[in-house]
């Protein structure tokens, strides 16, 4: 038997318990999402069902205003990611290239901002947004998510930047390129994998965040996906489980696709000196 095949079998055998545990909830979601409502509570519970009801998805889409929530989630996740990156790149560059007074303090500050969970700060954050007049505005989430993600993005980027040889930029200066110019033309293209990784981290955090979105957003037109789906469950007298699960499936699929598409980037980005 070829050794690669043997190795693959051993590896899959080792991974299989975990794979089962990971796929189990997804399977539950899927079979619940496509069954008719009167088969939600059969006894004994079973995986099978009488008819495959794609209609559940369509009904759910309309009933839970899914399209708008999807748009809101995209809006918040994308913009907060962009903002976090725009602010993090120069900061990370400074950290990796220049000495400056207070550098140690700045790093400590970054680590400390990681320690505060938004749940703990939710009241204060809310008071802040009231003062800014931004309550009920999706942009309040963009600002908060970006701020909370920045510690991680700066940190990741700076350790990556440190691995990019300085000579390249210096060579460009000698050629007469301005500092900014060399940064944009030479340095940034090299940093793309790291930026992709940090962008994914930031995007996922925004996509899945719940407590702040629940607190800041007023009108149900502005709900993000987690809030919209949770509101189908939380304290209702009638929970329409097939719709809840259909919503969850639809909210998960895009991220899963992005994952499988970007995973090479993801790992390469992590690899090239990500965290040191």
């Amino acid at each position: 038997m070829p050794s690669k095949l043997k190795k693959s079998l051993i590896y899959w055998a080792f991974l299989s318990p975990l794979v089962v545990v990971i796929l189990f909830p997804f399977a539950v979601m899927l079979v619940t999402a496509v069954r008719p409502r009167d088969e939600l509570f059969v006894y004994p519970p079973r995986w099978g069902f009488s008819e495959f009801r794609w209609d559940n998805f369509a009904e759910m889409w309309v009933k839970t205003n899914f399209g708008e929530a999807l748009f809101n989630s995209l809006y918040v996740s994308v913009l907060s990611t962009v903002l976090a990156l725009v602010l993090s790149i120069p900061a990370a560059y400074a950290l990796s290239r220049y000495p400056f007074p207070g550098k140690g303090a700045y790093r400590t500050f970054l680590l400390m901002t990681q320690m505060m969970s938004p749940i703990v700060l939710v009241l204060g954050l809310f008071r802040l947004m009231v003062a800014l007049g931004m309550v009920g505005n999706l942009n309040s989430l963009v600002l908060t998510y970006a701020a909370f993600n920045m510690a991680f993005t700066i940190w990741m980027l700076q350790s990556y930047f440190s691995t990019i040889p300085r000579d390249l930029e210096e060579a460009a200066w000698i050629d007469g390129a301005s500092h900014l110019n060399s940064l944009i033309r030479i340095f940034l293209p090299l940093a793309v994998p790291a930026m992709a990784v940090t962008a994914i981290f930031s995007f996922i955090n925004g996509w899945n965040e719940f407590v702040l979105a629940l607190t800041m957003i007023r009108s149900s037109d502005d709900f993000t996906l987690p809030v919209q789906i949770y509101s189908q469950v939380a304290g209702r007298y009638q929970v329409e489980w097939h719709h809840v699960m259909a919503g969850t499936v639809l909210a998960t699929v895009p991220v899963a696709i992005v994952f499988s598409w970007l995973q090479k980037y993801l790992i390469r980005g992590m690899a090239l000196g990500a965290v040191k």
Partner: peptide, 16 residues
């Protein structure tokens, strides 16, 4: 295998 291992990340903790 890589995609499967990453999957739990794709869904919010609340929904998990």
């Amino acid at each position: 295998a890589r995609v499967i291992i990453m999957l739990p990340w794709a869904i919010s903790l609340t929904m998990t």
